[in-house]
Amino acid sequence: MARTLMTLGCLWLGISGAMAHADDADDFPRQVTDLAGRDVTLMSPPQRIFLAQPRQLYALLTLMQAPLERVVGWAYPLAVFDPAMAQRLETRWPSLATLPALSRASTPGLDSEGLLALRPDLVLFDLSQRSRIEGSPLAHLLSEVGTPYLYVKFNRHPLEDGPASMQLLGAVLGEEARAKAVDDMIERHLAQIDQRLRNITERPRVLINIAPGVKVDCCRTNLHNGVSDMVTRAGARNLAADLAPVSGATLSKEWVLAHPPEVILNTGGQWSKGDGIRAGIGVSQQDIEADLQHLVASLPGWPALEAVQQGQVLALWHGFHQGPFAIVALEQIARWLHPEAFADLEPMATFAYLMQDSELSTQDGHFWARLPLVH
């Protein structure tokens, strides 16, 4: 069975190369360096891409007008994380609803034969998967059939990893112009934020609370990565950053009371399990506010925190640091932390540009909100 699949894979590589547009094929073979530092040679423009992480689709739709024309399958559907966003994307690309998936679990083991049966000519892995892929039977089979694979990453250091991954994908997919336009936009927005922050000395203390209610009620946090990068760049201090020399931690409710933050920043989504804060497509501002009120009321002592009393309890869509959208989160965080300096930023317009969705607006849903003040 495996030998048959490998033969089919080899045959398909020849076919896919012939299918590529002649002007694109002229630039191949092409060597690129992925986010793991691996030099990889692609013999022809990829036409059948497999996504080992469904949120990699965000990068493709940011780069390409019709990404589903070149995606043949994924490890598991985006709907596992965000069914509402998946449904919206299905209205743009109906074939997304029937895109082959190897699993319905969020942390599947990749089935080598199932993957090769899709005849991919490029496999995208997240860099976090590298320890499981390198030296594995799957890596050996991909090498045997001549299917290149690349590592990309977005959520470790989003403001750096996202643009680097987008430039890599732009080069691989022949979308260099769009990748450069996105990179230039991000650089302009970053420069504007950095310039204004030079005149701001106040750096509020922010507690980062990752997906409260999904795995624990409080408080999974980032120390020197993920959302922490955006909080720091937006002109604040991550409350937990200096307390533990590790990349992540779970803080107790009591620790928070002993180290009161000035701002509490939570991430929210539409997970199928747990009692998390809602955010995203189809979610109203009132939904998010109600969830923030429930969170605060359920944690002993929290209603007395200054951040709660001042309405500085915030919620931000979790997906902003899972794709090329970190600049959107940065702009909204900057607006919250320093409203006078950044009142003119338009993070929703930035998000619509990256999604290539001119109709994306708060009429579709809410991706952030704050706890209303109680008078």
Rank of each mutant, 00 (worst) to 15 (best):
W74D: 00
T62W: 06
H375I: 13
V328P: 09
L61I: 13
L239R: 07
R198I: 00
H366T: 04
W368V: 02
G170Y: 04
L89I: 03
L295R: 11
V152W: 09
L11T: 11
R119Y: 01
S103A: 15
R178E: 08
L292A: 10
V256H: 08
R233N: 07
A304H: 11
R130P: 04
L116Q: 01
L150K: 00
V374A: 12
V71W: 10
I264Q: 09
G37W: 07
W271H: 08
E187Y: 10
V263Q: 07
L122I: 07
F81P: 00
S131V: 05
Q286Y: 08
I281D: 03
P29C: 03
L8W: 11
R278V: 02
A59W: 01
H21T: 00
R188C: 10
V145M: 03
M230G: 00
R156Y: 15
G170R: 03
V313T: 14
E306V: 06
V263M: 09
A369Q: 07
T98A: 13
I186M: 14
L89C: 05
L360K: 03
Q129R: 07
A240G: 05
L102C: 06
L99K: 11
E254I: 12
Q65S: 06
F351I: 01
S358Y: 09
Q322P: 01
Q31S: 15
F351S: 01
M19N: 06
E144M: 00
A315F: 02
Q195C: 05
V313N: 13
L78R: 04
R38Y: 05
A86Y: 09
L42C: 07
L110A: 04
G135E: 08
D26Y: 05
L68V: 14
P212I: 02
E340T: 14
W74M: 02
L51A: 05
L173N: 05
C218T: 11
L299A: 01
D111V: 11
H321E: 11
L141R: 10
P372Y: 09
R88I: 08
A191D: 04
P94V: 03
L305W: 11
I49M: 00
S103L: 14
S106Q: 04
P347Q: 04
G213E: 01
W12N: 08
